[in-house]
Amino acid sequence: MVSLVFAGASAVILTGAMLVITVPSIFVAALGLVASLSGIAVIYILLDADFLAAAQFMIYVGGIAVLILFAVMLTGQINRASTINRLMPLAILISVITFFGIAYGITREGWRYLEAEDVLLPMVGSSSREGRYLADILFNDFLLPFELAGILLLVATIAALVIAREK
């Protein structure tokens, strides 16, 4: 069951990602991005990260993807003969080298871990407890980064308004 869901979700994720980088139309690419991000939320549920799955849906699918779609609509479709630059073979070569290099390292490393089916999660058995524990460490150990993230969001909001303002 888990393998089936994993296979389906990864097929959706990779297809969406390939759509983003291959299709000339920006709108289709944005829809592919939405599909890809939703698939990742499913993967988070498989990894017992229910809170992150909800956050992924709300922030990425609901926020960032809509923001990008909005920008696509505002800038309009500009038809050009070529949407890719002339360094495409080099780019693919770099990416393939990266992929196989790191994949070699991943498969060689002997990971010692708990299997997914093992029920050995005293702290994170259910989604409600995951949220509670997450809040616990977020507001104790990571309080300063949390506050800084809030300030960063405020600064970014003001900066985006100032930059995009009509002169």
Binding site: T83, I84, N85, A91, I94
Partner: peptide, 15 residues
């Protein structure tokens, strides 16, 4: 890797 190749060879800034 897919994101890397996309950010290297596409011309459109949104992509």
């Amino acid at each position: 890797s897919i994101g890397l190749v996309g950010s290297l060879y596409r011309k459109n800034v949104v992509i």
